[in-house]
Simulated assay, not measured.
Amino acid sequence: MLKINRENLKSSHQTIWLIIDFLMLGLLIANLALIIFDSVYAFSAIEGFFAEHTPGFHGLYDPIHENFLFYDLVFVSIFLTEFFVRWGYAVKASVYDRWYFYPFIHWYDLVGCIPVGSFRFLRVLRVISIIYRLHQYKIIDVTSMRAYQFVNFYYEAFMEELSDRIVLKVLSGVQQEVKRGSPLFERIQHDIVYPRKDMLTDWISQRVAQAAQEGYVPNRGALRSYLEDRVDSALKQNLELSRLKYLPVVGPTIQETLEEAVGDIVANVIHQILEDLASASNHAFIEDIINVFMPDPADARAESAANEALINLILEILDAVKAQVRVKHWREELP
């Protein structure tokens, strides 16, 4: 059942307009119910049924049916009055950039006011817009209605089925392209990626330098201490080096000197590597790595076996994605 949140209604700055929305909603529902009933009443069999079984009601409603356009125009006049009042307020409050934007944005309000044939049923759009506006202001909660949950469930089921079929069709097409040896991947590699190798090298070089500067330079002392401790612990566990301490007189001194020297060498090597990475001199190193992963196109064409393995990998990945797409999540939500 639809509930009205009176606290949000009171705290809203649009209280008057929201009350008008409720009144218009009631009038629209009544008007649409009357239109539907009159459309059904227009059948001679239905009119004859009322004339035979409920002559009092038939005598009362028959003049309304004969002059239905007049009664419908009463509703239309109310709807148009409300429309122009809202338009005037929108112009005064500068809701839109131009004063004439309002009728174009709210076109369904005007079209629904045409008292001819099927145009009348377009007033349903106005009902939907009012309900949506009330839902936006949290005056009502449409999602708590059973009708909404019922329609939304099957809408989501339909959309999932539709999107799954589209995705499966697309993935199957991609697999066929890969199996036929589509030149797409070679075009991406040779025409797009490889010509921009220098740009990629510069970008990666800058990113590595920035990461090294921000990560290493502020923690240089802590990293050096950690490396020296790790090297010292590893050397003490070394059996050959531990035997030096048994040399008479100079054994312990040699062992200690070697431990300090090795620790200092390792720390200095790591320090120099990170210093190089943190500077512009890392460009050549990064370029060598890029050349390993992105060889010259002439050499890349010779790697047919590697390309075949890559194609098989891509096909298996697409099969796994298709298997996951085939899972119907909406069926899991069925009671």
Rank of each mutant, 00 (worst) to 15 (best):
Y41E: 01
Q176A: 09
S11G: 02
W87D: 01
S205V: 01
V262E: 05
L23A: 14
G112I: 02
K92V: 10
R220K: 15
L239H: 07
T81C: 07
P295H: 05
V193T: 10
S118M: 09
E287Y: 04
D296Y: 07
N8P: 02
I19L: 12
E240A: 15
F75S: 01
S163Q: 12
L239D: 08
F22H: 02
A302K: 13
V91W: 08
D164L: 01
K197D: 01
R224V: 10
V217E: 14
S242Q: 12
W17V: 01
F104D: 04
V40G: 06
L32P: 00
W330K: 06
Q136H: 13
Y132K: 13
I128K: 07
D264S: 13
N67T: 04
S205L: 02
W17L: 10
N238H: 11
R180I: 01
I19P: 00
L227A: 06
R196C: 04
I29E: 03
V321D: 04
I46M: 06
A211M: 11
A278L: 06
L73A: 05
I140M: 06
R187N: 14
K169Q: 11
V124S: 04
G59Q: 10
A209Q: 14
P297R: 05
K245D: 12
S11M: 10
L2P: 01
S44G: 09
